[in-house]
């Protein structure tokens, strides 16, 4: 029962949305609108569960004095303090979301730089991965390597300085061979998605509900 009801809902929902696509009638559109109104509501409630989860995990670590437990404090304190700054603290003492406020300070002076730092680490990691893993081990790997060098040079002004042919070749690679390969993979992915969706709708695939193999 616990598994059959969700499976029935998945089947019914999947079939309705499939049929709805072909019916432009108002009644069909109402079904679609109804779904689109519900989706954000369900998502919002799930977020509450999410916050509950992160709180539970870290409270547990703090209580148990698990290794590195002070990091859990670093998670929990801002998690609850920042909304407090934004919604409950009076504007006279730095509350609210306007600039200047404590919330704005945390956002623009802490969160943005930290996140930008995380992304910028890509440059370091790419360099390291390229040095360690990019080898001309075979003829195909050599083609890949030469292509990568051309595209990389084509993406920066120094490529223009070396000759107009370089950026032109780089763009040609992106516009044609890249496109062909991408389409081939995407076709496979598309049919993979189709088969997975059908398996879920018709209950062949139950693993996502924890019922694999039944």
């Amino acid at each position: 029962m616990k598994r059959n009801v969700p499976l029935m809902i998945a089947m019914l929902g999947g079939l309705i949305m499939m049929i709805q696509y072909f019916i432009p009638h108002q009644a069909s559109q109402d079904v679609f609108d109804y779904y689109t109104e519900w989706a954000p509501l369900v998502g919002s409630f799930a977020l509450i569960l999410g916050v509950g989860s992160i709180t539970r995990v870290h409270v547990h670590k703090i209580r148990a004095k698990a290794p590195n437990w002070p990091f859990s404090l670093a998670v929990l304190i801002p998690l609850y303090l920042i909304p407090l700054f934004a919604f409950f603290l009076p504007a006279s003492i730095g509350g609210g979301t306007e600039n200047p406020s404590l919330f704005d300070f945390m956002y623009s002076r802490v969160q943005i730089p930290i996140q930008a730092t995380m992304f910028s680490m890509l440059a370091f990691y790419i360099a390291s991965a390229a040095f360690r893993a990019f080898r001309a081990k075979s003829a195909l790997a050599t083609v890949l390597l030469v292509t990568a060098v051309i595209v990389m040079l084509a993406q920066v002004p120094i490529g223009d300085l070396l000759g107009r042919w370089l950026p032109d070749t780089g763009l040609w690679i992106l516009r044609f061979p890249n496109l062909a390969a991408k389409r081939a993979i995407e076709l496979g992915v598309g049919f993979g998605m189709l088969a997975t969706c059908l398996k879920i709708i018709f209950g062949v695939e139950r693993g996502w509900l924890g019922g694999a193999g039944e």
């Binding site: 993979i185 993979g192 088969a195 997975t196 398996k199 062949v204 693993g207 694999a212």
Partner: peptide, 26 residues
């Protein structure tokens, strides 16, 4: 696992007939 191999993984791991059939259908 490249692209569709991700979708096929479940069938490979379980080897249930219908799952395998789905991969062949693809």
């Amino acid at each position: 696992l490249i692209g569709e191999e991700l979708y096929a993984a479940s069938a490979y791991l379980g080897r249930e007939p219908k799952q395998v059939g789905g991969v062949k259908g693809q």
